[in-house]
């Protein structure tokens, strides 16, 4: 009984305190779009090697979800959404300090299972009703871009699913459950199980990743150094290495 009581009491104290693992001052907390997962993990490793004493902490997720966390007071130093409009809104709301810096570009691509069994050649194949086809949900940037691509190409897609994020769409294509999916070009490069079918130039849509410190950032010096690293330092070549387009300065 006594020991159990102590355990419960300890748990309660821990819950009442703001956090059980308080953040160290040397931490640099980066909120990044899920599509940047591989890039940011590689960048973190390199940056920490170059800057001993700075510990980069990543929080990766859907751009809108991350924006919502910052609005609710999440402890972030840097914000990298996959959609410049989300950044613009966050700056306008005063949650992020502008101006933002563009660090990478991404384009759409068609992912097909190995061997391309349905012989998908272009975005217009998404009008074929006999195929199983997917895009991202309109709620996430990759879905909005895909919708925009269909609209500008005047294609009425025969869709079977709108996945909540690009990774689960990619997984269904990789597993052969879908004949094709509209994803980011960087995702196709990252997954050996799928093949890339390039969009025609007139079908193409792209997005830009922008970075800016939050208004509540506590580690401004480190934040600035990380932005520089991604924009012009070694981070820039890492971004290209993972299939993202570079941004002209």
């Amino acid at each position: 009984m006594r020991l159990g009581g102590f355990a419960v009491g300890g748990l309660a104290l821990c819950l009442l305190a703001t956090s059980c693992s308080a953040r160290s001052d040397d931490d640099l907390v980066v909120f990044g779009a899920a599509s940047l997962t591989d890039v940011l993990q590689a960048a973190e490793e390199q940056f920490e090697q170059d800057n001993p004493g700075i510990d980069v902490v990543l929080n990766l997720g859907g751009s809108n979800a991350l924006r919502e966390q910052i609005r609710s007071g999440a402890d972030a130093d840097l914000f990298i959404p996959a959609d410049p409009e989300i950044m613009a809104e966050a700056i306008a709301a005063g949650d992020v300090d502008g101006p933002e810096t563009a660090i990478a570009r991404n384009e759409l691509a068609i992912a097909v299972p190995a061997g391309n069994p349905a012989d998908v050649q272009s975005l217009s194949d998404f009008a074929r009703p006999e195929l199983l086809l997917g895009i991202c949900a309109s709620a996430v940037p990759c879905g909005q871009l895909a919708r925009a691509a269909f609209a500008t190409s005047d294609i009425d897609p025969s869709l079977d699913t709108e996945e909540p994020d690009v990774r689960s769409l990619l997984a269904k294509v990789a597993g052969g459950e879908l004949d094709a999916g509209v994803v980011y070009i960087s995702d196709v490069a990252a997954d050996p199980r799928v093949e890339l079918v390039a969009l025609k130039a007139w079908e193409q849509q792209s997005t830009t990743y922008v970075i800016a410190p939050t208004s509540g950032a506590t580690n401004a010096a480190a934040a600035k150094r990380f932005v520089d690293f991604l924009q012009q330092g070694e981070g820039r070549s890492i971004i290209q290495q993972f299939g993202f387009g570079s941004v002209s300065r």
């Binding site: 859907g62 809108n64 979800a65 949900a137 309109s138 709620a139 996430v140 909540p164």
Partner: peptide, 11 residues
């Protein structure tokens, strides 16, 4: 539930 999840992610 799917509609909730997907739309919670949107702006």
């Amino acid at each position: 539930p799917l509609a909730v999840f997907v739309n919670l992610q949107s702006a």
